[in-house]
Design a protein around this nucleic acid. Structure first.
Lengths: 244, 244
DNA sequence: CGAAATGGTGCCAAATTTTGGCACCATTCA
DNA sequence: TGAATGGTGCCAAAATTTGGCACCATTTCG
């Protein structure tokens, strides 16, 4: 009996019998006391809540609440988490980002197929590169919290987006564009969009966008965006897993 | 990367990319072709329906209908996710952080109450500020993967920590200190600790710490750490939050 | 009080499983 | 035919798991 089967057996036994001692479990699953104690620790690490009571009449007890633990996240939430973990990895904090990424993989596994498809299409629009050191960062602002929900609709439904844009000189203009890609040049974030009025691509710094709104009834086709060679799509980013 | 994590990663990749070759997967998860083939067989045993097509243009494909509905994140994974989001927000790299927060809130709900309490206590030790531009970043290294688990114990149980420290001149010394706070001055991370031998606070750059170990049987009291005024605790950090 | 029953930890060597590499087979497609 | 692809058997090396032991802490019973 390998440890996976054993863990299942232990959980099943605890569920059925309510409470059990380590020795009883050890006998039940045919393993040593030491091994069962290790299994209990592992199960606790995995999120099972197992209460224990030492002394005569004590034993182990599985908290029934810990059995239902499904977090149903929205696509945008998973996306937001993913980019934060990606940024963390890019910054070189592997121990943290690897663990966080493993957690996200579990969450993704539970996402329904159509959400995974949306997530993939969203991530396909994401590109990462290095910022030129010449950029002026002194006027970095905050990104409108309504931007991501608006992006979600605009990118996935391929609908035009209207927003106010404040250019480098502080001029406010209203734009109506076709969102084609998102670009991260840490710490700056850009929207790459086709501007039909100018018949050309434009880069918009996200912290300069306000009042984003999807324009009803519009539909556009995806265009090929060509990036510099030092900018790579998120999906081909080097990932965790140290190769031996 | 152990086989459980690898299985999660493989499923994630297959779901995201629709179809993938064994070699691509092997490269992705950092394992050999043989191992991935074994993993695929194991996943099929577990009930995942994975179609395969030999020959040119072939590959593996995960049937979207075969999906798992529950995920149980390890406590450490939730910790890592929270820290990632927190740190990236602090660094100002992270737009959409309120959405990430919403996702985290859902995930947090699946943790047992005492773990949530631990999480809060851990995050209470986290402080964020701005790095002086004079700092030399040329020798930034990687953070020891054992640091996070060691911190978890040391901070939560208030136990002393022993580690090797490489100072700015490259000198290696062994320190035994009382961890009092974590400080992020993007992109650098510091441990702020009371050094009993020197009877004073010290800042240790995390990428210069190696071989961390909790010292058994030690217990210390929390001290008030005074920070510069431009450094604020994580808990009072400005949050996104959708206005309305 | 002392003894017994219980959970829990550290350590180590033995047992077991996992892994990577290799050779080789079958299928598909250009 | 040759290249790209999935798949299997085998083996030694690497990594992990396991059991045994000593020992600690807490609780309850007599």
């Amino acid at each position: 009996m390998n440890f996976r089967t054993r863990h299942d057996a232990i959980i099943r036994h605890l569920r059925r019998s309510g409470t059990a001692s380590v020795d009883a479990l050890a006998h039940e699953v045919g393993a040593s006391r030491r091994t069962v104690l290790r299994d209990i620790a592992a199960l606790r690490d995995q999120g099972f809540v197992i209460h224990s009571e030492p002394g005569r009449g004590g034993g182990l007890q599985l908290d029934p609440q810990s059995m239902q633990t499904t977090a149903r996240l929205a696509v945008a939430e998973v996306f937001a988490l993913l980019i934060s973990v990606t940024a963390m990895r890019a910054a070189g904090y592997l121990p943290f980002s690897d663990l966080a990424d493993a957690g996200l993989a579990k969450i993704e596994k539970t996402l329904p197929p159509e959400k995974v498809r949306d997530l993939r299409r969203f991530l396909d629009c994401l590109h990462v590169g290095k910022l030129s050191p010449l950029q002026d960062l002194s006027d970095m602002g905050f990104i409108d919290p309504y931007l991501l929900p608006a992006f979600e609709t605009a990118f996935l439904e391929r609908m035009q987006l209207r927003f106010q844009y404040r250019d480098a000189k502080g001029q406010q203009t209203v734009r109506e564009v076709e969102p084609q890609a998102m670009l991260i040049l840490p710490p700056l974030w850009y929207l790459v969009a086709w501007d039909p009025a100018r018949a050309d691509f434009r880069h918009f710094r996200m912290d300069r966008i306000s009042k984003p709104d999807v324009i009803d009834g519009t539909k556009f086709r995806q265009r090929h965006v060509s990036f510099d060679e030092d900018i790579c799509p998120y999906s081909s980013l080097p990932r965790g897993g140290i190769r031996g």
